[in-house]
Every structure is written in structure tokens, then in C-alpha cells.
Amino acid sequence: MGLVLFYILGGITIVAALGVVTTRNIVYGALFLLASLSGVAGLFVVLFAEFLALVQLLIYGGAIIIVILFALMLTRTGDFSVATEHRRWPAAAIVSLALFGLLAGAAISDSGEYNTYRRTGIGIEELGAGLFENWAIPFEVASIVLLVALIGAIVIGRSGDDEDGADETGNGGQG
């Protein structure tokens, strides 16, 4: 049962990821990304990490995809749907395939030790206790990171007082 689910969800994840990096239409790319991230959430369920699957769907599927779609909408140019690949893409493909061969070879040759262990899951209580006891200080640091990123995004994304203020009215006229 777990094996069948793994192959279905893994297939969805990989095929959708392939769609993300090869599609010419950038909006399709965002939707492929949503499918791929949903497949990863399903894989979390196969690994008995239900809370992480929920977080994955909420944050990636709910928030990040929406923000990316907004950015696509706001930075749309005429030549978006053609020639989105760099002209040296074969080199990138060779590098990626070589790295995949390296990683897969290392995984096959050296992961026998843990393969005999049985997969288990934990409840959300244990996860919360671990997060707020052992990981309390990193949790607080993460909150500061989020706050700084939020303020930074507002400051950077604000229609600025720099010299391109005239562009703002032009964009408003088009929108």
C-alpha cells in the first residue's frame, strides 16, 4: 500500500517538477509547481508526517503559489512565453544529470544501514513539545527572521522615492 502510494505521489511530484523547469508558459509553470508541492505533501503523509503535510499545503499551496502568481501578473512582459531557456541549457542539463548520478549512486551504495528500521510517526503533541522545549531559541530567531523579511519586503517593494517615480504612474495607467 505504501509502495503504491509512493510511486503514484512520487510520479506526480517528478513529472510536475519536470513541467516546472521545461514549460514555456510561465503561468503553467506556477500551476505545475503547485502540483509538485502537493505531491510532496502526499509523500509526507506516506512518511507519517501528517502535520507537515498540512503545513506544506497551507504555506506552499496557499501562500507561496498565490504570491508567485501575483508576481507573474505584475511583471508580465510580451516576450515571457518564448525563449525562456538560457542558450547554454545543455550544459545545465549535463551538470544536473551528473549530480543526480552522484547522489543516487551514493544513496544506493550507502543507505543499507537504515533500511531495516520500521517507519513510525509521532503525534502533534510531541512535535509541539519538541518545538517549544528543545528548539525554543531557534523558534524565536525564526520569528525575528520572518519579521525582518516582512519589513524588508515592504521597504523594497514600496513604490520608491527614487528616480523611477514617474514609472509608477505609467504602470498604474496600464493596470
Binding site: V21, L99, L103
Partner: peptide, 14 residues
Amino acid sequence: AALFCLGLYGVLAR
């Protein structure tokens, strides 16, 4: 590994 390498290809080629 496959997902990571697809992402790497996307970073390098897009």
C-alpha cells in the same frame, strides 16, 4: 535527488 537535480537544472537554465 531527482527533485533536487530538476531544481538545479531550473536554476541554471531558466
